[in-house]
Amino acid sequence: MSWTRGLPAALAVCVLLLTGSAGCGTGDAHEGKDGRSASPVGRVLEDTDEDGRHYREVQKKDAPEVGIEVQPDADNAWDVRLTVRNFRFSAGGAKPQAVAGRGLAYIFVDDRLVTRLRGLNCRLPARLVPRGTHHVTARLYADDGTVWAVKGEPIESTADITASEAAARPGRTEDTTALSASRTCPRTGGRGSPERAGKAS
């Protein structure tokens, strides 16, 4: 009958092993040497963006991709449209952790952050795009604030746009007319079938 006394102990060991209560980590995230959370999704690099957010390196095969197109609209503003592949926008209030192929897009004008998107479209007012040539960049971020990256480069796409002021007419303020030429940086995506719905947060 000694096996009946050993059974509860064996079951307790099994429970400890299954729940991780014996001092093991949960596997969701572990702390790195420098105190940063090292998620099992990709590898956090030392490289950072302009605001100090670390790059999260993932394999190119299943990496997210983004493309950007910027066009002037009738109200002197600019319509920004993104296309994404292997990527889904997280809902507002998502947990601040990296999940493969999820997150949001940051939109920069000349390397200055102007908005964060949880969808494919946004509108840039004319005041953010003064006269001259500008670079509008969409960069993909995980929900923990890290930058999705491949081979040490952020996953982003940039469009060059030029705003020029027409001559002012009596009784009317100056109009902003624009030419737009989109270009996709070599290190970015945007290939494949785009998602068709989304909106700015």
Rank of each mutant, 00 (worst) to 15 (best):
S2T: 09
W3F: 14
W3D: 13
G6S: 13
L7A: 11
L7F: 14
A9H: 15
A9T: 15
A10R: 08
C14V: 15
C14T: 14
V15G: 07
L16E: 12
L16P: 03
L18M: 08
T19Q: 01
T19L: 02
G20F: 02
G20P: 04
S21H: 10
S21V: 09
G27S: 13
D28S: 11
H30E: 11
H30T: 15
G32C: 13
K33A: 15
D34N: 08
G35F: 07
R36G: 10
R36M: 14
S37Q: 11
A38E: 15
A38Q: 13
S39F: 12
P40D: 12
V41Y: 09
R43I: 11
D47Y: 13
T48I: 10
D49H: 04
D49C: 06
E50T: 09
E50D: 09
E50A: 14
D51R: 14
G52H: 01
R53K: 11
H54F: 01
Y55V: 12
Y55E: 11
V58S: 04
V58M: 03
Q59D: 09
A63V: 10
V66T: 00
I68E: 00
P72L: 02
D79H: 01
V80A: 03
T83I: 09
V84W: 04
R85V: 08
F87W: 08
F87T: 05
F89W: 02
F89V: 02
S90R: 02
K95H: 13
P96W: 13
Q97I: 12
A98F: 01
G101H: 11
R102E: 10
R102C: 05
L104A: 04
A105H: 05
D110H: 04
R112W: 04
R112P: 03
L113T: 01
T115E: 01
T115S: 03
R118M: 00
R118N: 03
L120H: 00
P125Y: 00
P125T: 02
R127Y: 01
R127N: 05
G132R: 08
T133I: 07
T133G: 04
H135I: 06
H135P: 04
V136A: 07
A138K: 05
L140Q: 05
A142G: 07
D143T: 11
D143Q: 11
D143R: 13
G145C: 07
T146S: 15
V147H: 15
G152K: 07
I155H: 09
T158L: 01
D160W: 04
I161W: 03
T162L: 02
A163K: 04
E165H: 11
A167G: 11
P170W: 03
R172N: 14
T173G: 15
T173C: 14
D175W: 05
A178H: 04
A181Y: 05
S182F: 06
T184P: 10
T184F: 12
C185I: 10
T188F: 08
P194H: 10
R196E: 12
A197E: 12
G198S: 10
K199C: 02
S201Q: 03
